[in-house]
Amino acid sequence: MRAPSPLWAFGLLRSELLTTFRRWRTLALLGVLAAVPVLVGIAVRIETSDGSSVGGAGGGGPAFIAQISNNGLFLVFTALAATLPFFLPMAVGVVAGDAIAGEANAGTLRYLLVAPAGRTRLLLTKYTTVIVFCLAATLVVAASALVVGALLFPVGDLVTISGTRITYGEGLGRALLIALVVAASLVGVAALGLFVSTLTSSGIAAMATTVGLLITVQILDQIPQLHALHPYFFSHYWLSFADLMREPVYWDELVRNLGLQALYAAVFGSAAWARFTTKDITS
């Protein structure tokens, strides 16, 4: 019997992170996400090249889009608002859905467990990795938008949506805070995807189910008759990140969003644990 290393948990986590971020699929997802701000930026640039504003007087389009042409930093917020409803959670759903089911599909799960990775430890490692991916994906969008915004549009002091003025430095700070909140908004989807991933041995099925659930919830969130249920949908408060751009910051929905994400993480995380630690591994 050898003594377990005190760093046992981190060895597997490091390996998991390396494995995840070396996959071509992960890089492709991040690449698509990085492309979104580029497209939005170029589109806004073209549309406003004649001096007109975007989205018409009605202020259509994703949040903050009208301000981009005046301050490139707003591209960060617009890009996050544009990717949060679908692109970001879809990417997270793919990575989370594949986390356990993909290993089961490839048969590598049995070798990890015999190694022995330990089921609880493996699940924690997987969830941590998915959350790191949430953060990485959000930061990729934000960083890409920041660069594209600075290249295509003027930068400088900006006006919050409450009409007050803040410096570019503080704006950058808020952009980082918003990116963190957006990443935290994906924690619920990540737990849901992980749970689905423990239910099946097919990575594709788990990914499809997670993304399907995501779309279903988004649709249900639009149905007025289900009004009473809306506050419990993980996507309901997603756009509350914009409240960080108010002055003073309006915390109510932000806090509700983070609480809801924590609840999803606890419920589906523990459900995934209950399922995975009692599951027969036959693949």
């Binding site: 504003s53 007087a57 202020g59 009208a66 301000q67 409450s162 009409g163």
Partner: peptide
């Protein structure tokens, strides 16, 4: 007296 609509930036 200022009115500011952040959505349309007007």
């Amino acid at each position: 007296v200022w009115g500011y609509d952040s959505k349309s930036n007007e």
